[in-house]
Simulated assay, not measured.
Amino acid sequence: MIVTALFAAVIGILAQITIPLPLVPITGQTLAIGLAATILGARFGTLAVILYLIIGAVGVPVYAEFSGGASVLVGPTGGYLVGFIPTAFLIGFILEKTSFTFKNAMIANSLGMIVTLIFGTVWLKIAADLTWIAALAGGFTPFIIVGLIKAALASWIGVLVRKRLHSAKLLILDQVEITKTY
């Protein structure tokens, strides 16, 4: 529970790293989502994201640019936030079914980035009443290169941190690990 809450806080902190763009800013949130899922796996990575979203929805200013409240979730950028849930699950699921290597993490984080962008772009189109061309131009294409860079960072840092936490016996995430440890 503590590690899950810690990663919810990490997501909120990295969300404040923003590069403003006309419709949707580039933020550190997606990097944090990738880190949470890569380090914690599907279950706890997804729980960290859900906790982060709940904290922001009740009004704590943890979303990008110190925003918060349910209005952000239903606003033009809400799809990206909601898309973090399946993104975290997908990244963790892929890694749990394969292995926590940089290559697998890069594949998982890249697919996760695409999931977030799809959710965000569809939501942006509907919430902002844009054409598909405008929604793709403002909510998808500007984020591909930056998203791949963040996917690589989340993969590299996430796998490294996960290995170190495991070797130090500081990260126990499932019953199999608990049985092996005790």
Rank of each mutant, 00 (worst) to 15 (best):
A135H: 00
I157F: 01
L160T: 15
K150M: 08
V159S: 00
D174M: 13
A151W: 04
T131N: 05
L165F: 01
V176K: 13
P142I: 10
I118K: 13
A128S: 01
I178F: 07
L165S: 00
I157K: 06
A128Y: 00
I149T: 08
F140T: 01
A135C: 04
T121M: 08
L170I: 06
A134G: 08
T179V: 14
L165M: 06
W132K: 08
R162D: 06
V176M: 11
L173K: 08
I149P: 00
S155E: 06
G138I: 07
I178H: 09
G139S: 07
L170N: 06
G147P: 03
L130I: 00
F140S: 06
E177K: 02
V115L: 11
T179L: 12
A137E: 10
A152S: 05
W156N: 12
W132F: 10
I118T: 14
G147E: 03
K163L: 09
R162T: 12
V161H: 01
A151V: 08
A152W: 03
I149S: 05
G139K: 09
I126A: 15
G138K: 05
A137P: 03
G139L: 06
V161F: 04
I178K: 12
A137L: 11
A154I: 00
F119L: 10
R162G: 10
T116A: 15
E177N: 00
L165I: 05
V159C: 04
L170V: 03
V176P: 04
L165P: 01
G139H: 03
L173I: 10
L165D: 04
I145Q: 09
L117H: 08
F143I: 09
A127Q: 04
L124M: 07
R164L: 13
W132C: 09
V161S: 02
S155L: 10
I145K: 12
G139C: 07
A135G: 02
I178G: 07
T179R: 14
A168V: 13
L160G: 09
L148M: 13
I149E: 02
G120Y: 13
I172M: 12
I157D: 01
D129M: 09
G138F: 04
Q175H: 14
K163Q: 14
S155M: 12
W132V: 12
R162V: 12
T116C: 12
L165C: 02
A154M: 07
L130F: 00
T131P: 04
A127M: 02
I157Y: 01
K150P: 03
I149K: 05
A128K: 00
G120E: 12
A128I: 02
K163T: 09
K125L: 06
K125N: 06
L173E: 05
V176R: 14
L130V: 02
L124Y: 01
T121P: 04
G138S: 11
D129C: 08
I144Q: 01
A127N: 02
A128V: 01
R162I: 11
I114Q: 09
